[in-house]
Every structure is written in C-alpha cells, then in structure tokens.
Design a protein around this nucleic acid. Sequence first.
DNA 1: CCCGTACGTTAACGGTGTTAGCTCATGCGG
DNA 2: CCGCATGAGCTAACACCGTTAACGTACGGG
Lengths: 211, 211
Amino acid sequence: MAPARGERVIASQARPRSRRGEGDQLRREILEKTAGLLATTADEEAVSIRAVAQAVGVTPPSIYLHFADKDDLIRAVCEQTFELFDRFVEERVSGIDDPIVQLAERGRAYIAFGVQHPEHYRVLFMGKVRTHEQHGTVEISGFAHLFDNVERCIADGSIASRDPVLVATGLWTLVHGITSLAVSLPGYAEAGLDQLIEHMLDVYRRGLAGP
Amino acid sequence: MAPARGERVIASQARPRSRRGEGDQLRREILEKTAGLLATTADEEAVSIRAVAQAVGVTPPSIYLHFADKDDLIRAVCEQTFELFDRFVEERVSGIDDPIVQLAERGRAYIAFGVQHPEHYRVLFMGKVRTHEQHGTVEISGFAHLFDNVERCIADGSIASRDPVLVATGLWTLVHGITSLAVSLPGYAEAGLDQLIEHMLDVYRRGLAGP
DNA sequence: CCCGTACGTTAACGGTGTTAGCTCATGCGG
DNA sequence: CCGCATGAGCTAACACCGTTAACGTACGGG
C-alpha cells in the first residue's frame, strides 16, 4: 500500500524560473507531467503531489500556486482527458452513415479508449465523487453525441423506444460495464474480450430493435 | 484529500489482553471493526490501520500480527462480504420457479446489494488488482449460481444462445455497469434508477430471447 | 535606480503504512 | 512448585503523504 522502504524516482531538477508574465507556463507543465505519471505508472496512488513536483522540477508547494488541492489537479487532468476521449470516439465513428452501425462502433471505440488508458478511465468514472462535482460540460458533450446518435436510430426505426435519454443512458451503462471490469479485473474475459463485446452489443441491439 | 487539521475519533481503549490460546480473538475483532468502519464511514481512505487499531482498542502494529499488510486486511474483509453478497442474492431469488423471472430478480438483487453497500462493492469490484489475485472460490460460487440460472433458461428456451458462459458473463457485466455507476456517480440516473434497471433488463432479455 | 510583486522556496505539522526491538504475563514441562 | 519459553501486545522510529505559513529573490515598470 505504501512504499515499503522506497527508492524514489530520480529528480529532474533545475527547472528555470519562468519570466514575469509566464506563470501559467508552470501550470501547463504540471498538467502534462501529471497526465504522464498517470499514464506510465498506471497507479493513481503513485501520482502524488510530491512526485509531480519532482517530475516538473519544482518544490511541492508550488503546485498550490495553480491548483487548490490534489483533487483540483486531478480534476483538471480529467477535463483534458475528457476532451481526448470525446475526440477519439468521434474520429472513430465519423464517416459511418448507418446510425445503428455507428452506434455499435461508438461502443467499441469507448471501450477501446478505456482499455488503452485504464488509469485515466478509472479516475474519470470509477473514482470517488471528486471528478464529477460539476464540470459536466465536456462529459455532457460526449453524452450529447451519444444522445444524438440514438435519436437518429429512433428516427430511422432501428430502435423502437421513444425515450432517447433512457436508451442512451442504458447504452452508456452497458459499455461502461465492460470497460470497468476490463480495467479492474485482470482475468476478466481473458479468452475473448472482443467476443464478449460483440455478443453484448448484438444482444442489446436486438433487444432495442423492437417488441 | 488528507484531513486538513483533523480532529480524531475518540479512542475506545482498554481492551483486555487475550489469554494464551486466544490470539485469534483479536483477528475476529479487527475484521469486525474494519467492516464496521467501511460501512459507516463509507470511505476506503478513512479506513486506516490506525483507525482500525483504535476502534479495536489496540496499537497499530498489533494489526500486523494477524494480517500481512493493509491489502491483506481489506481482502479478508472482502472474503466475508462475498459470502454475505452471495447469501443475500440467493435468498432473494429463492422460491422463484420461472428461470427467466428468477434471472431478472437476481439482477435486481445484485444491484440492490451494491447500492446498499457502496464502499464494500467498490472494494470488491472497482478497486485495483488487490482483491482478486486468487481467492476466486467464493466469487466463483456466486458466478456459479448465475451460470446455473442461465443454463436453466437455455434449457427452457427463454434464452436462445448456446454459450452459457458468454451469456452469464454478459449479464454480470450488465448489472455491474449499473451498480458501478450508481455507486460512483452521485447524479447518475437520479430520476429513476429503478426505471433504468427495468429498461435494461427488459432490453437484454428480449435480445437474449432469440434472433 | 529602486522597489513592488510575480514566482517561487524552506520549514513545519499532522497524517499514513510499516518495521525493529522490546516488555510482560501465562501456562507447560520438569 | 517453579523456571522459562513463548504468545500477545507495545514503544519508537522511518519514509512517505497532503497542506500551510512564512520567507526569499529576481525582474520590470515607475
């Protein structure tokens, strides 16, 4: 849980002090290094204020010049990640005309992003309240794309329900379930995550098709 | 993240030393108090070795006489919880004859347990690797009950698939998705978790029914 | 040129998991 | 009945964590 008798990561000190008007430079560096630590160590616990400070080449209290506390820092990183997440998915589904086909690909893209960035996904959707206190804008933007896709499916008859919010929430929940377990449980669906994904997407699509 | 300037919980000291052969008495007390703290504080971070020790009325190092480290302690609590979980679900589905009806109720019971014990559920299925390194027995027992239920559904024709493992895994993933988000995101499905549950169970059941 | 202020630093507090080494009573073998 | 091994627990300490208060310092505008 805590480092037993830890060797620490080597310092990368000697960061030059910023010029007068460029205090925000440090902010960007902190965000960058924090995201980097989260990605490489793949362990939220390992991303400590002190580790970030050292990676940036600055002392721990300097972090607090730009972020209220650790939660604030993590939340800022999440904000960034949300945008990446949304862009990643939208790029993968762009150019698909059939709404129901696009919807399935959207699900696959969602899961792929989560599996490729497990610690980020964990912070985004599996952490404690921290992340989601308000800042819903970007998250909503991602959900809005899904919602829009569902509405097009309803319009062309490939989904029978008349409640797009309910359907979209259900779909999100479905892919989150897969992603969440894939991220948390090592041996989950070991012999065929793809098979499970296709199975569930298929079952759910048939269920949505009609009565 | 860390307590700002914390007031501590009052001690409950003066625990009598155990007799010669009854060292395991302390082990049981530790498990009990740990589960209690997890349930009342609803915050894994708040369940510290020191807090547990104080609740039991003993000094922190004494914990290590019975548990290798904090992960080991948490894992032991999980083991207990798994059994409770399984019993809870089995009791709620007992006496339901129609397999497909029982399957749906099984899902509802699963979600209900998770929502009622959010911090336990989080530790069980949303934590890091810790929990699930091996100890699969009890977990398997819960999954085995689900698997059995699915097989009966296939036998009576209410599920078309011929792959009970795939179907059972999918169902588990489905209810986990709901539980996971309900536990993590405060505003999730705020106006109608039950509605969402029924919607998803219904969609999935129809999808499983046949082509 | 000088001094205010932006950009940091040093030192410290209280918290955490964990370990090494100690005390002290208990109960069993002689 | 007594000695002492051993079980049950404690004291003290280490390294790390988030966070704050107080202090330095160099740069650029007056």
